[in-house]
Simulated scan of single mutants.
Amino acid sequence: MNPSASGSETRVAVLVDCDNVTPEVLEYALRVIAQFGRVVLRRGYGNHGTLAHKWQEALVRLAFTPCLQYQYAAGKNTADIALALDAIEAMFDRRADTFCLVTSDSDFAYLCRKLRERGATVCIVGEAKTPDALRNASDQFFEWVKPEAPEPVIDLPERAAVKAEAAKPEASKPAVKRRPRFLVDAVSLLVSDTSEGKVDLGALGQYLKRTDPAFSPKSYGHSGLLDMVRTYDLLTPRQEAEGLWSVSLVTQAMAGAETVPPSHS
Score class of each variant (00 low, 15 high):
Val16Leu: 04
Glu196Thr: 15
Leu201Gln: 06
Ser246Met: 06
Gln252Trp: 04
Pro150Ser: 07
Leu189Cys: 02
Thr259Phe: 14
Ala13Arg: 11
Pro23Ala: 09
Asp132Tyr: 04
Val176Ala: 13
Thr22Pro: 01
Ala128Ile: 12
Pro213Met: 14
Asp155Ser: 11
Thr10Ser: 14
Ser248Thr: 09
Ser172Glu: 14
Gln206Pro: 00
Thr78Val: 05
Ala109His: 00
Gly119Ser: 12
Ser8Tyr: 02
Phe36Leu: 07
Arg135Leu: 08
Ala96Thr: 06
Thr251Arg: 14
Ser265Gly: 06
Gly49Gln: 07
Glu240Cys: 05
Trp144Ala: 00
Val32Met: 04
Ala128Tyr: 05
Asn136Tyr: 07
Ala214His: 11
Pro237His: 08
Gly243Thr: 02
Ala171Ile: 07
Val12Trp: 06
Glu24Ser: 12
Met91Leu: 15
Gly75Arg: 07
Arg118Thr: 10
Asp227Gln: 09
Phe215Gln: 05
Thr194Phe: 11
Ile81Cys: 10
Gln69Arg: 12
Val153Thr: 11
Glu258Lys: 10
Pro147Ser: 05
Leu15Glu: 03
Phe92Ala: 13
Ile81Tyr: 14
Tyr72Ile: 08
Ala186Asn: 01
Leu59Ile: 05
Arg230His: 12
Pro147His: 03
Gly37Glu: 13
His48Asn: 09
Asp139Glu: 06
Arg179Thr: 11
Thr50His: 07
Lys163His: 09
Pro150Arg: 03
Asn136Cys: 04
Arg113Asn: 11
Val153Ser: 13
His48Asp: 12
Trp144Asp: 00
Met91Cys: 12
Val176Ser: 04
Glu242Gln: 13
Val40Gln: 02
Leu30Arg: 12
Ser8Arg: 10
Leu101Asn: 09
Leu62Val: 01
Leu115Asp: 09
